[in-house]
Design a protein around this nucleic acid. Sequence first.
DNA 1: GTTCGATACTTCGGACTTGACAGTATAAAC
DNA 2: GTTTATACTGTCAAGTCCGAAGTATCGAAC
Lengths: 128, 128
Amino acid sequence: MGETPDTSTDAPNSQNREIVCYCPLGGVMDILSRRYAMQVICVVGAIGPARYSEIEDAFGGVSSSTLSTRLDELVEAGYLSREQYAEIPPRVEYDLTASGEQLCQRLDPILEWAEEQEAGRVPGEDGT
Amino acid sequence: MGETPDTSTDAPNSQNREIVCYCPLGGVMDILSRRYAMQVICVVGAIGPARYSEIEDAFGGVSSSTLSTRLDELVEAGYLSREQYAEIPPRVEYDLTASGEQLCQRLDPILEWAEEQEAGRVPGEDGT
DNA sequence: GTTCGATACTTCGGACTTGACAGTATAAAC
DNA sequence: GTTTATACTGTCAAGTCCGAAGTATCGAAC
């Protein structure tokens, strides 16, 4: 994609342009668009069965309330599984479900790319 | 990041687990985690140079203030270009930059997968 | 027997983000 | 003079996120 697919005539726009509707994406994308959602999937994918505190540590300073909410949503949506052991102190392990792994595979390229972008960025260059 | 490395007896996992830090992803992921951000990239990637109203139409009922903010951020971040023509009524065209296209390539698999998930979902099946 | 420690969360008030809807600017068409 | 078209901006209410502090459990320490 990317090479102006159907502009064979000289008009630069407004030919029989197909408008694709992105509305039905709602469900999944709404979940992924919440803060840390994509990173949580990839963190759990990276370190296998992951305990709450391990996930928390993988981020710099995420608030526990936000992380907890995110984990709940991801479990509810079927991308993560949650296993609680009857031990003291308590132990809870999160892991990817089959859906979660499919998602993680598609998410990883983005996270890797994001990492490269951040690494190659010279501080103070983009004029924030 | 430190964890007890000698719990090999009571825990079924916890080898020399490497904790990867996901903090530096901040910049890019924060932008992508805002509402409609990923979809906007893919919509513009799909319909080439895209006018504001075309992007608006591709979504069901996005609010204009949110979409406008999102476009500004994406332009500011260097993923979209914005060209304004001195015409009446006004015409503005958004397109992917080189960075934007790289991002779009990595985003497309997710959007496609999300579409499949939504399509194959039977209402009331996921056990709430 | 009282305090301490460990883990995985909740709860709280305030800050930030989003949504709905109305309004702005311009010039041609009627 | 009024209408039409586009690409936004403004305003206010509702929703979401944040950090800090608190909760629950039970064994171990004192």
